[in-house]
């Protein structure tokens, strides 16, 4: 990988294959890949059981049972999110290059010069078919899963970010993975990343 710092953030709709695309990019650029495993590193560093943190990952807090005082909030969801944001900022400040899926990374690391941000969308039918295939779900279940996951991700993102989830102004590129498929979308994104790196 280049000596310069590169952070690839991938936001995604559920079923769009964004996660798989991010994994492909991490392999091709030989970068560490972070999604839920980010919490494992955090938990190891703090000497706590990761299962206690995972329950609250990428979930919006309930405003009726949480309160903020001088920047402190009692919500486990909010604190798990902040822990991850702090960890991402720390890695970015140390000059580490990595690929990160979700976790508002494109907003949290907005001012990091080496950030390249993507948002992956997909056609409803294509996403539905992919979810049915991967998770052995019925068509109805797949639609429900898409609706629930996307609503949760949207609420989570919009709570912590001043930009809206999926708003193309917040990302370098918003791409529909249903047009080229997962592999070719990854090719397209790789090409874009290499061109960006050449400009630095």
């Amino acid at each position: 990988m280049a000596e310069k710092q590169v952070i690839i953030s991938v936001g995604r709709e559920y079923g769009s294959g964004g996660h798989a695309i991010a994994q492909i990019l991490a392999t091709r650029f030989a970068l560490p890949f972070y999604d839920k495993n980010l919490l494992e590193e955090i938990a190891t560093g703090k000497n706590v059981d990761v299962r206690n943190l995972e329950k609250y990952d990428e979930i919006p807090k309930n405003p009726l049972i949480s309160r903020t005082v001088r920047g402190f909030n009692n919500s486990p969801e909010e604190n798990v999110a902040l822990m991850q944001f702090d960890y991402l900022k720390k890695m970015a400040a140390e000059g580490t290059s990595f690929v990160i899926v979700g976790r508002c990374a494109e907003s949290v690391l907005k001012n990091v010069p080496g950030l390249i941000s993507f948002f992956i969308i997909g056609d409803k039918e294509v996403k539905q078919e992919r979810i049915c295939r991967l998770y052995h779900a019925t068509a109805r279940q797949a639609l429900d899963m898409m609706r629930d996951h996307d609503r949760r991700r949207k609420n989570y993102h919009n709570h912590f970010s001043e930009w809206k989830w999926g708003d193309m102004h917040n990302y370098d590129i918003t791409v529909n993975s249903s047009r080229l498929g997962v592999d070719e979308t990854a090719d397209f994104m790789e090409d874009y990343i290499r061109r960006r790196i050449l400009q630095w």
Binding site: N52, S66, V69, P76, V80, L82
Partner: peptide, 21 residues
């Protein structure tokens, strides 16, 4: 946890160290 300011601050400090309350 939300009844008094000290509760919010204390639980938040514990949470930031990985000990969610």
């Amino acid at each position: 946890p939300i009844g008094a300011s000290a509760n919010v601050v204390g639980t938040s400090i514990a949470a930031r160290s990985g000990h969610l309350i």
